[in-house]
């Protein structure tokens, strides 16, 4: 669709935008800073900076947020691209296998039991919830002895509906904790610490490298199981491996930042409009654009109603849903 040279320029421009937006995100917030302060603090020259407070705000509060936004956007968008190829459905997202609803049930249980957040607590419950949902969906789909991705998709949808109902039930029973449950469900980066970043980073990087490695296979899977098979792919095995890899990074991101919707659905679309469907070009760029998307969403979330803060998930949904309608209309026009 586009030449290699043009693609290279798009990647370079994207990287520049990512760095610039990260810097801007570091400056914006309840305490507005300027570039000089940012330079001082980033160069580690904390003795010269106006006060240790700025250094603290940037390195301990804003920088982890920005890094987590990049990691989450990257993981969700890259996995979204992979899921869409595997399910041959440009409308599927990283949550189709019940990952988000499983995590929500886990987090809700943790909140209801009074387990506090932080490094462990809620994230661990959310991660376990996501994994259990995933295992049940897998077991259901593969015990039917069908390698068709549709079975997985349907099992995932049924699982999501059931888990959603469980969250609603828990909400009704534990009205007193409704606010914290809902806030977690909407997703956000407001309590991200460096320790969490150290846990999430290797998982996300590992899954990205693996997905890039499988880019060719994803292209073939997008053309149909029979085609993929005739071109040397062990479909059942490869689908399981790729889904597990992406599910791992998505569930760890969800565990620490809640359910942030629409990123994994629309970012791959935006990239596909720009560079086409070849996963070798799509995956790296979707990962970067996902990071940018969430930096913007998170910055908006914490600056629009200062000193309050909006959940990032609602911002992405607010912008994502109209764009999704736009995609639907565009698709229906081009498929006449």
């Amino acid at each position: 669709m586009i030449s290699a040279a043009k693609y290279k320029w798009i990647v370079i421009a994207t990287l520049v935008a990512l760095v610039l937006l990260s810097c801007i995100a570091l400056l914006l917030g309840p305490t507005n800073l300027d570039f000089a302060a940012l330079y001082d603090s980033l160069s580690g020259d904390s003795a010269n900076s106006q006060s240790n407070g700025i250094w603290q705000v940037i390195t301990q509060i804003r920088l982890p947020r920005v890094v987590m936004a990049i990691l989450a956007g990257t993981a969700l968008s890259a996995s979204g691209s992979a899921f869409q190829s595997i399910f041959r459905n440009p409308m599927s997202d990283p949550y189709v296998l019940g990952i988000s609803s499983g995590a929500s049930v886990g987090a809700t249980i943790a909140i209801v039991l009074g387990i506090q957040g932080g490094l462990l607590g809620i994230p661990i419950f959310a991660f376990l919830g996501a994994c259990s949902a995933l295992i049940v969906v897998y077991w259901l789909a593969f015990s039917l002895k069908q390698s068709e991705q549709n079975t997985l998709l349907l099992a995932g949808i049924a699982m999501s509906l059931m888990l959603g109902a469980i969250v609603s039930l828990l909400l009704v029973i534990h009205r007193d904790q409704m606010e914290s449950i809902i806030f977690w469900t909407l997703g956000g980066f407001n309590a991200i610490s460096w320790q969490q970043i150290w846990i999430v980073t290797p998982v996300v990087i590992f899954s990205l490298i693996m997905l890039f490695k499988y880019a060719k296979d994803l292209n073939l899977l997008a053309m149909g199981n029979e085609t993929a098979h005739s071109l040397g792919i062990n479909v059942k095995k490869k689908v399981a491996v790729i889904l597990l890899i992406s599910a791992l990074s998505v569930s760890i991101v969800v565990a620490y930042s809640g359910v942030i919707g629409f990123v994994g659905l629309i970012v791959p679309h935006m990239v596909r409009f720009t560079v086409g469907a070849d996963n070798r070009k799509l995956l790296p760029l979707a990962a970067l654009w996902g990071g940018i998307f969430l930096i913007i969403a998170d910055t908006l979330a914490r600056t629009v109603v200062q000193p309050g803060e909006l959940p990032v998930g609602s911002i992405t949904a607010l912008f994502g849903a109209p764009y999704f309608f736009f995609i639907l209309i565009k698709r229906s026009k081009s498929h006449v």
Binding site: R88, N219, A222, M223, L231, G232, R272, F273, G276, A277
Partner: peptide
């Protein structure tokens, strides 16, 4: 195959190149 899904925006050249993937 009887029905090949062409849901995604691969170019003709990219689709034909898949024959060389192996």
């Amino acid at each position: 195959p009887q029905n090949t899904q062409l849901e995604f925006d691969f170019s003709v050249e990219e689709a034909v190149m898949m024959g060389r993937y192996p």
